[in-house]
């Protein structure tokens, strides 16, 4: 099984040394006050910032894997989605229509221009864009913060199904306690003192 191991990860913006393990098929939820470095931790795991410590996926250590390959396997979903081209289709390969339908889109969405999309639509499409890489790890930075309750439920379902079927390791940052209880296999609290598992 390709579980994600994070050992003593930190950098100059993230002084605490963070360690955690997430097995494939498992969803770990991290919560805690803003500004302690949850997003920075996810960025370091995706190797988007310089960092100390060691991150590995199964037998492969991050530093030994070509970084573009690493980021396709360890997919980071930022809190705000960003788009660099005019049409939706410019940003992703063909998405299976079942997946589109699951998040409430028809096939024609690929022809839409990005300007027309609402924040919530962009966020849902960003999730599909990320899943198209078939990552083994998903690092999700408040993926449902900008969504209406109906979409939240659909997104949770899609991501958890992906987690179980692939199987993929999920790290899900959420401030929503009810959501954490719904989706988490393990729960962590991240504050100034560092990251600690919450035993329920």
């Amino acid at each position: 099984m390709t579980s994600l191991r994070v050992e003593d990860v930190g950098n100059k913006w993230l002084p605490a040394k963070i360690s955690l393990n997430v097995a494939a098929g498992e969803c770990a939820v991290i919560s805690g006050p803003s500004g302690v470095g949850k997003s920075l931790l996810l960025r370091s795991i995706a190797d988007l910032d310089e960092h100390n410590g060691r991150v590995s996926l199964g037998d492969s250590v991050c530093a030994d894997v070509p970084v573009t390959e690493w980021r396709r396997k360890v997919g980071l979903l930022a809190a705000d989605s960003a788009w660099w081209s005019e049409k939706v289709a410019d940003h992703m390969p063909k998405i299976p229509s079942e997946q589109l339908a699951m998040l409430g889109f028809g096939k024609e969405v690929m022809r839409w221009s990005v300007d027309r999309l609402s924040t919530g639509e962009k966020q849902r499409l960003a999730i599909l864009r990320l899943l198209a890489n078939k990552p083994s790890v998903l690092l999700l930075d408040e993926p449902t913060a900008n969504l209406d309750p109906d979409s939240v439920q659909k997104v949770e379902q899609l991501l958890l199904e992906y987690c179980r079927n692939k199987p993929a390791a999920l790290i899900w940052v959420s401030h929503d306690i009810a959501q954490a209880e719904r989706i988490a296999d393990s729960r962590y609290h991240f504050d100034e003192k560092g990251l600690n598992e919450v035993k329920s």
């Binding site: 988007l48 573009t68 390959e69 980021r71 997919g75 980071l76 960003a82 660099w84 990320l130």
Partner: peptide, 21 residues
Amino acid sequence: QRTQIEARLMLGHSGMQAITD
């Protein structure tokens, strides 16, 4: 365009791809 460039990096694009435009 920092966020757009980094969004591409996150998806596994190389730096040169991400900054091509």
